[in-house]
Nucleic acid binder design. Structure first.
Length: 744
DNA sequence: TCTCTCACTTC
DNA sequence: TGAAGTGAGAG
């Protein structure tokens, strides 16, 4: 399908825009492609000094501005420009010929992410910028070896809430603060061939998170246009600006294009990994997360119990305090049951944390165990000890904390697509999420502007999974179950001429524009940013910016960071090592370009949640904006999703997988088989609308809720007790240091 | 809550 | 050797 097949932008409603250019560029480019003067061009014009106005880094500004805005530099209003403008030849603006590819993305360091998700999902942001931890790393497969791809990442608000850490858990504390300008980070090695990308793990460790709205790592620009759609700032930079105490969801995008200029005309495949969702904080709130990072981040090695640094000294001090406390406690209270029990717990805590007592190099596991009580033991054991200690450490199958709190993938996913009419905090909805471990599944979001009928599908499996807590629980101890939910946006069909699409988060103005619908990059004008590519321009952006067939940059740098987490990952998972990728099908073709039909998506047995990522736009309502994938069912189905859901670890079902994906099944380990089994045949179920979705969501929610009661009491009791102990300890120390107390 | 400095680490 | 990434801790 060629670009010419797309419907023209509806005059006065929405305007296509190029992320790096004034909004007119794309339209103009399109006009060039179409070979005619766009009739809808208003009188908007670019400032003569377009390039300067954009304040783009030289390396970027040059090629882009020269080629796309070159005409503007002459002072000519776009409206007067025609195909004869100084734009690149039509040919170069056309999308590359269709290439057979079927990108799949596997989140690396998944074990670590899972632990991260279980423990509270805190991600530190600082004024100067902090790297993400766990590091966002993915492995791609299914790419066309010869074709070039641009890989991007951005972080979007997960909901409209502000959070607070209260009583050892995250709670909604109100409405979200105004959203920070969003940025899109382009992997510095982009563009690179599929072969190059697939040869290594793609890491985004250079992306930093900051709360400094005025950080200089970005390039902000203001558009001169009066048009509401174009107001706002675009920023590009190595750092993504986030609001502290707000929840975010990283997204990964694959775009097959050898030229950044083709981004607007290329298919965006967006992948979401629920377990990577996090709450930005300026200081750690949850000790468990701190511990996780200390134990897995090389740079924090100095704080490990096994180290010789300050941590060790501090621990010793703590030990002393503990002894004092212990003695005093005995003298004062004698040995009542209560004290005994408390003491027992305390001792457990202390002992485990004591290097002398704990197994070599595995002290942390126990530290956390008592401190939090909860089922974190499993998590802790895994992460701290790696696989070897993990199994043994799996004490609790109930993610006590999880059920009670607002986390959980399956439910999350359900919620992602559940309507939230009252603007109900997504988080609230999440209260009923099931534990994340049962389904950390990557969500794939593919936006498409093709004229397919809007449909929503859900795999039967999801329902079963949602309702089957037992199974979920069962799955927890062992491996992760995957609850796939695939959603495909079909912007074009969904609403052409229908006006605003709240469900998708399309700005009213964009509703009628299919060209860019479903394109995350374009649907989030205010959120677009370029990241590290600029900082490391020479290496990464050079090629990217060199429009045409620039020499493909190698991906040598992709794997540069081998975090300690890798160790943990490797340890804990036999799964990680043996598992083939957790592939994510995505499907979408942006702008009418024919891409794999949805049907082709379902065959993938993996857990995916495809959502309408693209949806949001600067003009979109805040909630929608923040949640492109939410409220999908608030209106007519605009999404086609297929939740593969769930945890139906039935051996037999694996056969299905094998059938569907012989090669994959063969390669996959037991876990995969399970995951596959979980994924019901997507094609088989075509949910027609939000109503069903809602009902399903409801089911999920209710089921989750019902489960909570069972899991919480027990856990809470333990937690409470532990917390009491912790408080006592805290009382003795200037600062509570749960994980480090120890006793002789 | 946030910011800054510090000691420590990796690379 | 030094730049840069860490969490702790103080303010």
């Amino acid at each position: 399908m060629s670009l010419s097949m797309r419907d023209p932008v509806i005059p006065g409603t929405s305007m296509a825009y190029h992320p790096f250019l004034p909004h007119r560029a794309p339209d103009f480019a399109m006009s060039a492609v179409l070979g005619h003067q766009p009739p809808f061009f208003p009188a908007l014009t670019l400032p003569p000094n377009g390039a300067a106005a954009l304040s783009l880094p030289g390396a970027l500004a040059k090629p882009i501005m020269d080629q796309l805005v070159g005409a503007a530099e002459t002072g000519l209003p776009f409206s007067s420009l025609g195909p004869q403008a100084h734009l690149r030849p039509l040919k170069t603006m056309e999308p590359e010929e269709e290439v057979e590819d079927d990108p799949k993305v596997h989140l690396e360091a998944k074990e670590l992410w899972d632990q991260f998700h279980k423990r509270g999902t805190e991600m530190v942001i600082t004024k100067s910028g902090r790297r993400m931890f766990p590091p966002f790393k993915v492995r791609c497969s299914g790419l066309d070896k010869k074709a070039k791809y641009i890989l991007l990442m951005d972080i979007i608000a997960a909901d409209d809430c502000r959070y607070k850490f209260h009583n050892s858990r995250w709670m909604v504390a109100g409405k979200a603060d105004p959203e920070m300008p969003k940025r899109m980070y382009i992997h510095p090695d982009s563009p690179a061939t599929g072969e190059q990308w697939m040869s290594k793990v793609v890491t985004f460790h250079k992306l930093k998170l900051t709360n400094n709205i005025s950080d200089k790592h970005g390039f902000t620009l203001a558009f001169p246009s009066d048009h509401a759609t174009w107001q706002g700032n675009y920023s590009f930079g190595t750092q993504t600006i986030l609001n502290s105490m707000h929840k975010y969801q990283p997204r990964f995008h694959i775009v097959r294009a050898n030229d950044i200029l083709k981004l607007p005309y290329s298919t965006f495949r967006t992948y979401l990994f629920p377990e990577t969702e996090f709450i930005a904080v300026t200081a750690y709130q949850n000790d468990k997360i701190t511990q996780l990072k200390i134990d897995n981040n090389p740079f924090a090695k100095g704080f490990r119990d096994t180290g010789n640094g300050r941590r060790e000294k501090r621990k010793q001090l703590t030990l002393q305090s503990m002894r004092v406390f212990d003695d005093r406690h005995k003298k004062e209270n004698g040995t009542s049951d209560e004290s005994s029990s408390e003491q027992a717990a305390f001792n457990c805590f202390a002992q485990s944390s004591s290097p002398a007592v704990s197994t070599v190099g595995t002290s942390n596991l126990k530290d956390l165990c008592p401190s939090e009580g909860e089922s974190d033991a499993e998590a802790d054991s895994k992460e701290e000890h790696g696989p070897e200690a993990c199994d043994a450490a799996k004490i609790s199958t109930t993610t006590s904390e999880e059920p009670c709190r607002d986390k959980g993938s399956p439910a999350v996913k359900a919620h992602l697509f559940a309507a939230e009419p009252g603007g109900r905090p997504r988080d609230a909805g999440r209260l009923d999420k099931a534990s994340p471990d049962s389904r950390h599944s990557p969500a794939t979001i593919s936006s498409s502007t093709r004229g397919l009928g809007a449909e929503e599908r859900r795999s039967p499996g999801r329902e079963g999974a949602a309702t089957s807590k037992a199974e979920e629980a069962r799955a927890l101890p062992g491996k992760e179950a995957f609850a796939p939910l695939t959603v495909q946006t079909d912007a074009a069909a969904a609403h052409l001429g229908q006006g605003p699409l709240p469900g998708l988060g399309f700005a009213p103005g964009l509703a009628g524009q299919q060209f860019f619908n479903g394109h995350p990059l374009f649907l989030h004008p205010g959120q677009f940013a370029m990241g590290g590519a600029f900082s490391s321009m020479a290496a990464g952006m050079g090629p990217l910016l060199a429009t045409v067939s620039g020499a493909s940059t190698g991906v040598s740098g992709l794997d540069s960071t081998a975090m300690a987490s890798a160790a943990a990952q490797g340890l804990s998972g036999a799964s990680a090592a043996t598992l083939p990728f957790h592939l994510q099908p995505h499907v979408l073709a942006s702008q009418g370009l024919a891409m794999s039909p949805f049907g082709s998506l379902f065959p993938y047995p993996y857990t995916y949640m495809a959502a309408a990522a693209a949806a949001s736009s600067a003009a979109a309502s805040s909630s929608v904006h923040r949640h492109p994938f939410l409220n999908l069912n608030t209106m007519r189905p605009r999404l086609r999703y297929s939740p593969y859901s769930i945890p139906m670890p039935v051996p037999d079902s694996s056969s299905l997988l094998a059938t569907a994906l012989p090669s994959m099944a063969a390669a996959a380990g037991p876990l995969d088989g399970k995951a596959a089994a979980l994924a019901a045949s997507p094609a088989s179920v075509a949910v027609d609308s939000g109503s069903e979705l809602n009902s399903r969501a409801s089911t999920l929610s209710s089921s989750s809720v019902s489960l909570s009661p069972k899991l919480c009491p027990e856990k809470e009791a333990a937690t409470s007790e532990l917390q009491n102990i912790q408080r006592l300890v805290s009382g003795l120390e200037a600062k509570p240091d749960r994980s480090r107390s120890g006793s002789p």
